[in-house]
Design a protein around this nucleic acid. Structure first.
Length: 516
DNA sequence: CAGTGAGACTCAGAAATTTCAAA
DNA sequence: TTTTGAAATTTCTGAGTCTCACT
């Protein structure tokens, strides 16, 4: 069937995703179909009445072929495409801020497509419309040259607001949320903010003992609100939970954080695994990532939880007298600039620093030190519950690594035997360098074997743990840089180019004796 | 003056793309 | 060498946090 342009485009959005799990979900299919029908002409609507009767395979094949053709392009052609993209980046990817040329993070508006919410998102599959210049507000300096809108178009608005950092903004139709064009993390502006964030966390370090005794005292408060706040804060501090704002029902997936925990998300065990007073958490957090944890808590916490749970239905809030606003207000009184999320930053960074101290041996090889670093990083990622789907190829590549280790072991054994043979024959030879050569070969192979073993351990332990988020957003880079300098590990081993650019501020200021 | 919603920012994992090492 | 495929990196954009103005 020949579709109108508008209906065809929306159909291609679906066709491209045919292999994706999304297209098996009822909500996704339903939302897509409803929005698709809105794009159809009256005549099309008359014919196309059931999604299940539509065949998108031809569309899907078309795009699969196109992608394959692109991959098969000759080298020179690919090079040309790359250069073109670079030209675009140079022309539109930078701005001048306070006289400095700064890289922009996202300089392209988001293309139209089908909304891909995480978890059980009620809006998944809805049509995300094309952004037109008429939707875009430009924010630039009063005296700067206003970027030209595409020919025949106009910007929605041009303003000069010095109180915000965004360069352009538009409203996305699915969630009715504002989207922004902002600077790259490597920019001075973002770098300063990043630094400030860690400085607030370091100030928390100075008062955290006091805050802890305060909330422990509040566990016995006469005021219910204060008790709930104190227990919630204990969780935020001990378990690095997020604050947990209220969410509008039906607008997004049903996820919670600390303050929005419901009765159904916690279970109390007077005793479990040999420990008294155990709380079992099971809920979906940000991005619908499951948080599951069984933690022994102190008796007063346990007693309070029993109290909070009394006479409540599973769907009711555990901390019914508490909101993130009131919690943060309280925190603000305890320390200037303190909010719930600062505890995550603080605990992540202090954990990294502690783990690095505990795990690193000065006499270790670089590879062993890097394993220690990764383990420290992983401890933080586990604390923050940063998870990833195990890579689809995980088992396969793990197996490949194992067989590689076996092969290397074999080689080592052979090299050993050869060395022995060379030793035995040495007396009768003039040339000692032959023996030396064999010895070096064995040494090198053994080194490689150790490295592979390290790699395997690392891989297995990190199967479901996502290290990137903590590394990028929670760990004061100065801790890592100081560690590198102290132990002679090249910074490039832990931060790639992009990360070094983002953390340029820290590379400038962290000496080897930096302490968080 | 508590609650509410918009706005602006940080943080999040998946997906796409590029790089690199091994076959 | 050239090809292939896995790992590393980059891009993408959705999902949180928190502030502030308003009622």
């Amino acid at each position: 069937m020949k579709l109108s342009l508008a209906a065809e485009e929306v159909a291609t959005f679906y066709g491209k995703m045919l292999e994706h799990e999304y297209t098996t979900k009822e909500v996704f299919r339903h939302n897509f179909f409803r929005d698709w029908r809105k794009e159809m002409t009256a005549a099309e609507r008359k014919v196309i009445k059931r999604l299940s009767k539509c065949d998108f395979t031809e569309i899907h094949r078309h795009f699969a072929d196109r992608a394959a053709a692109r991959r098969a392009l000759p080298r020179e052609e690919k090079q040309r495409l790359k250069e073109e993209a670079e030209k675009l980046q140079q022309e539109f990817g930078y701005c001048i801020l306070d006289g400095h040329r700064e890289k922009i993070g996202n300089f392209k508006t988001e293309p139209p497509g089908l909304f891909r919410g995480r978890g059980d998102h009620p809006k998944m599959g809805m049509l995300k419309r094309r952004v037109l210049p008429e939707d875009v507000t430009i924010n630039c300096g009063r005296d700067s040259k206003v970027p030209e809108p595409p020919a025949g178009h106009q910007w929605k608005e041009v303003r000069s607001d010095r109180t915000v950092t965004w360069l352009a903004a538009w409203t996305e139709n699915v969630q009715n949320a504002t989207k922004y064009v902002m600077l790259n993390p490597s920019s001075k502006l973002k770098g300063e903010r990043d630094w400030e964030k860690y400085e607030v966390a370091r100030r928390l370090k100075g008062v955290v003992d006091e805050i802890r005794s305060r909330y422990r005292a509040d566990w016995k408060s006469r005021e219910m609100k204060a008790r709930q706040r104190a227990v919630a804060l204990y969780f935020i501090d001990k378990l690095a939970l997020r604050a947990g704002n209220e969410k509008e029902e039906g607008e997004s997936a049903d996820t919670v954080g600390c303050c929005s925990l419901r009765v159904e998300h916690v279970q109390l065990h007077p005793e479990a695994d040999g420990c008294p007073y155990v709380v079992e958490f099971d809920f979906l957090g940000k991005d619908s990532i499951r948080y599951y944890n069984k933690v022994p808590v102190e008796k007063p916490v346990y007693r309070n939880l029993q109290l909070f749970l009394e006479n409540k239905d599973p769907g009711e809030e555990l901390f019914d007298r508490l909101t993130t606003a009131s919690l943060n207000k309280h925190l603000q009184d305890l320390m200037d600039g303190l909010t719930a999320k600062v505890f995550r930053t603080y605990n992540a960074s202090i954990t990294l620093q502690g783990q690095l101290r505990a795990l690193t041996r000065a006499e270790d090889s670089i590879a062993a030190k890097l394993l220690s670093y990764n383990r420290a990083n992983r401890a933080v990622a586990v604390l923050c519950n940063h998870q990833r789907a195990p890579p689809k190829t995980f088992e396969k590549s793990m197996q490949a690594l194992r067989s590689k280790i076996e092969a290397k072991k074999q080689q080592v054994a052979e090299a050993k035997a050869e060395l022995e043979k060379a030793r035995a024959g040495h007396a009768s030879r003039e040339d000692g360098s032959f023996l030396e050569k064999r010895r070096r070969r064995l040494e090198k192979l053994e080194e490689q074997l150790v490295r592979l073993g390290t790699q395997a351990t690392d891989k297995e332990e990190g199967k479901q743990v996502a290290l990137g988020t903590s590394k990028l957003n929670y760990l004061d880079p100065r801790i890592s840089i100081a560690w590198c300098r102290r132990f002679g590990v090249p910074v490039e081993k832990i931060y790639n180019k992009t990360q070094r650019e983002k953390f340029a501020w820290a590379l400038d200021m962290a000496g080897e004796d930096f302490e968080f």
